[in-house]
């Protein structure tokens, strides 16, 4: 079931010692605010590929903290995405993750949906793709949901 896999979602372990030391220095901090550090970048690159479908959202699928995140979860829920294909990250638990993911995708808002490591879009785009049928084809193409038996 969709919801069960998501319940285990935790924040990304972005709080390595290296990063702590960096953010302790004000100059480095100012720099980090603008540019994605190599550590952040490689952690995000790992995170977006952790499962075929990855969502960065506010809250959890069971308790979304934002209407846009809720909408994305509901839309994907309609497609019966199997639990083992999906991973969500709650950006509210991790401010570093929240700003890093925005830098990484060059996209200023949350939620963000990734398929096989590739940024698909936020709420409006996923909603539009759902309505046009593109979302289903995309999920099928990446073997996230089974291809329709008949065409």
């Amino acid at each position: 079931m969709f919801g069960r896999a998501l319940r285990s979602s935790t924040s990304l372990a972005l709080r390595s010692n290296a990063l702590r030391t960096q953010t302790a220095r004000p100059t480095a901090n100012a720099f980090l605010a603008r540019y994605l550090s190599q550590e952040h970048r490689s952690m995000i690159e790992t995170a977006v590929k952790e499962k075929p479908l990855v969502i960065f959202m506010k809250g959890t699928p069971d308790v979304p903290q934002c209407g846009f995140s809720r909408a994305v979860v509901q839309i994907l829920g309609l497609h019966d995405v199997p639990a083992d294909k999906l991973r969500t990250f709650n950006v509210l638990e991790d401010q570093e993750l929240r700003s890093a993911i925005k830098e990484y995708s060059d996209w200023p808002t949350i939620p963000q949906v990734y398929v096989d490591g590739e940024f698909v879009g936020g709420c409006d785009i996923v909603m539009g793709m759902h309505q046009s049928g593109e979302l289903e084809s995309l999920l099928q193409k990446h073997d996230i949901i089974p291809k329709s038996a008949s065409s």
Binding site: G121, C123, I125
Partner: peptide, 24 residues
């Protein structure tokens, strides 16, 4: 669609930096 969003987001980068939080 994504390019259109990006065009608008980048046009409003200052606003996002200054506290604009969500744009549908």
């Amino acid at each position: 669609s994504m390019q259109r969003h990006r065009m608008i987001y980048s046009a409003l980068a200052d606003e996002f930096n200054d506290g604009l939080h969500a744009l549908s």
